[in-house]
Design a protein around this nucleic acid. Structure first.
Lengths: 217, 217, 217, 217
DNA sequence: AATGAATGAGAGTTCATTCAT
DNA sequence: TATGAATGAACTCTCATTCAT
């Protein structure tokens, strides 16, 4: 699990600086208003230097998306693996997701742009996270901890909940004021969202769930 | 309930043609790659004509978003109101949502762009739909048909599920191939998603769900 | 001298309204920022109506210039002809010039634009006024009231003085503040300008004037 | 007095080329008909290059006006300072003014546009030249070489004479034919104009001039 | 490895003019 | 006589990308 980090060469450091600057500029301005000039200025390098390390604006965008994706999954896995019990792991992973996005609002803002900029990057991003959910759910299901539901669909549902709640509470803040400051998901919202999810996944239901709720004397 | 539609004047017809063309072009190309030239060509009018009816590219974008929002909510309400029983109404509304987006993939593609293009339009879109969910859930809760959960959070969860499932199955099609043709949500996916939702909302659980899951004697 | 004015037809009234509106809009906005739409709106007529009476934007500009020129010359002649004595007539004419431009700052603003818009109109404007000066000076010279100087050159000098003093004090106001309100030429400035002119024109000098001033023991 | 001129960098040369081209194009076509495309074509550079050195069309216009103003004042001061005697200096300065405008008809054509394009530049241009006249007149007055007249008003009168005579004879040529070739002010016209001015400024008259003129016993 | 001057296609927008009504 | 919807050429300005240094 541990990676031995070699000392970076000068070139690698320059490249890394550009990548970090790009994430920031993309997050602040969006893909289209982020210009190469702004990115290179933020990175403190010359314009031409950009093309020494990246072949195009789209390429660096893809790389930023990939980098964010890697980091959010890492955070989720790390949080999950420290928890005891599957449900706890699930909660921890979800919380890590929100925390990550609260610290890196770029995630939402960048990802949502990707639809037209780089559909492939967008799909890869979602698919990778969903695969994590799906595999976890499938395992939990085998252990009887999750009810009878298609793990794929359930995993996408989780993804959707995570994304929209993040957008609503992290990006928009407590009030739906445009340009409001980003903040964390309030604890009571997090709890309610988890309740929603846990009820949906709770074992015991084998039918549609529609009638079940009512038949529980 | 029926509205008498006056015959359109020539100007109104031109305006409508531009609006329809814009929806199509925005959906195909995204906001930034959609140019006024492309929109007016698609509408079969001159460039200058555009500015007779809209003051800017962003204005027509807002109007397209608003128009789609009005139509999707109309479709959902219409479907809901024909159903018997609250749960049926809920299912019907959700199905209408997917059907609408299958026929108007523009909805997703356009709305997701709005984050940077017109944040106000984006929020209005989500908020309006969520308000519909929330009010319906609150009413159902009073009637004892929905469990003890914050209707606001639950409504956003529904919105997230609807959006991501729509994106995944309507826009991407059965396979996650970029550029694949849009299609409807497969029935089994729809059923699974509804099961997920209905379990989450089912009455009977008054706790967090967390403890319930653990109470497996 | 008196013209019997026929009652205007409806068309003539419309035309006149457009002309008045054009003078105002040209004066406020300049030739290029004055659009046909703005002129017709100010006149309270439709866009197309404009082309019923004028063939182009330049044509109406020429007509506005010609109209102003006619009116300023009329005012100058009227003032001159009421004065007793040539010098008094000259002063009265000059004063009328400043008064007209104080009331119609459009004169300056429009005329100075004409250089590129309609050189012919510009030359006609200056030439007509200068001819008036020149003929008056020539007559006064014959009467021994004006010194030995070429009336043509002197007339142009008068024109230049009138224009620049008008620009400086009428358009810019007492202080050289951009956008200051137009005002009349202050009496002391008018007196000084007239003194300048009257000394220049005073009879008695037959040489260059250069030495004369000094040789007057 | 001599300035060591550093060799220009490549960028400075490009900028200078654009500035020269702009002066020419503005002079030929006027501000509004001068497009960035025409300017950059005349300069032999790409369109985008323009915006590397100037932020807008109006900015380069201001710079052209300022540049011309600096050069004409320089020419006038240089000519004046080589003359012996105040009156000679005055004549030399005026002659330099006409010579400059004969060689750079752009001066008139550009300056007269500025009223609507850049009022600030226009005022600066006139004010700077007038200040030179005024200070010279005030000094000459103290030395008893100029009569009792407000130097400010007299300076503006000189400015007006210089401008209109320049326009009439330099821009329009000997005949008042539109589009005629520019030429120098004919010597006899120059002499007459100087006579006019020198009489106006000659010492000896302390009254208004009005009474003097009348005192012809 | 690094630079930044240079490019030109393409963007959104304006407006004098026409013409069917 | 009067209208105003429609046009499209032309405008100013931006920016991803190249390349000589």
């Amino acid at each position: 699990m541990s990676t031995i980090s070699q000392p970076m060469t000068k070139g690698e450091r320059t490249r890394a600086r550009i990548l970090v600057a790009a994430e920031q500029v993309f997050a602040d301005l969006g893909f289209h208003d982020a210009s190469i000039v702004k990115i290179t200025e933020a990175a403190g390098v010359g314009q031409g230097t950009f093309y020494l390390y990246f072949t195009s604006k789209i390429e660096i965008f893809d790389e930023v998306v990939e980098d964010l994706n890697r980091r959010v999954r890492h955070a989720m896995i790390a949080a999950s693996s420290q928890a005891t019990g599957r449900i706890e792991a699930e909660r921890a992973g979800f919380r890590a997701f929100f925390e990550f996005t609260a610290e890196h609002p770029a995630l939402y803002r960048i990802v949502r742009q990707a639809e037209f900029v780089s559909p492939g990057a967008l799909r890869l991003h979602y698919t990778r996270i969903v695969e994590g959910y799906r595999d976890g759910l499938a395992k939990a299901q085998e252990a009887g901890e999750v009810g009878d539901i298609d793990p794929e669909v359930a995993a996408w549902a989780l993804m959707g909940i995570g994304e929209i709640v993040g957008m609503r509470w992290v990006l928009w803040g407590p009030d739906v004021e445009p340009g409001g400051p980003t903040s964390a998901v309030p604890p009571e919202v997090f709890d309610q969202a988890m309740t929603f999810i846990e009820r949906a996944l709770a074992p015991g239901g084998t039918g549609t769930g529609r009638n079940e709720g009512e038949v529980r004397p």
